[in-house]
């Protein structure tokens, strides 16, 4: 059952179940983790309303052949208090619905640049600004359901 306003308009066009567990080996706080497609590749991302942009795991970016030269040079982003160098891109992000309709958006994505053999210990994150800020979304913790919708009904 998707969410609606009192007048019958849709609040959410799609809904999916989410995983709820710590997002890294060191993390102890559970995170909301949903399935998405980044540039057509299905993967998992953490919903991070305290963050900015879509922070794309560099290994995923590598699979997608995201070319740093086509992005905004080297920008620095503060991730959990640490300045990380990388490039900013405009990427396609699709929230995958199990019920209702999936939703594709263009978002600002940050791809960290690692030193050779430096591991990336975080997953991909969907932040608020630059990524989720133009969507409606809601969480039902009793069913682990993540609802999402476009502000104007979409597309």
């Amino acid at each position: 059952m998707l969410l609606r306003f009192e007048d019958g308009r849709s609040f959410a066009q799609g809904a999916c179940t989410f995983l709820y567990h710590p997002a890294t080996e060191e993390d102890v706080t559970p995170r909301i983790i949903v399935a998405v497609q980044i540039e057509g590749l299905q993967t998992e991302t953490v919903v991070d309303t305290g963050g900015v942009y879509l922070v794309c795991d560099p290994e995923i970016a590598d699979l997608l052949d995201v070319d740093p030269a086509r992005g905004l040079g080297i920008a620095e982003l503060n991730i959990r208090g640490i300045k990380v160098s990388g490039s900013l891109h405009r990427l396609s992000l699709t929230l995958l619905a199990e019920q209702g309709q999936s939703l594709e958006l263009e978002a600002t994505a940050f791809v960290p640049r690692l030193q050779p053999n430096e591991p990336w210990k975080l997953p991909s994150f969907m932040g608020l600004m630059g990524c989720l800020e133009r969507l409606r979304f809601a969480v039902d913790p009793s069913t682990d359901t993540f609802y999402f919708g476009a502000l104007d009904g979409g597309g």
Partner: peptide
């Protein structure tokens, strides 16, 4: 400007993907 612009919904009527639940 293009890269930093607010996110934009491109398509909101895409079909559901039932396999999401099985993978989770």
């Amino acid at each position: 400007t293009h890269v930093l612009a607010p996110p934009r919904v491109v398509k909101a009527n895409l079909p559901p993907v039932p396999s999401v639940r099985a993978n989770q």
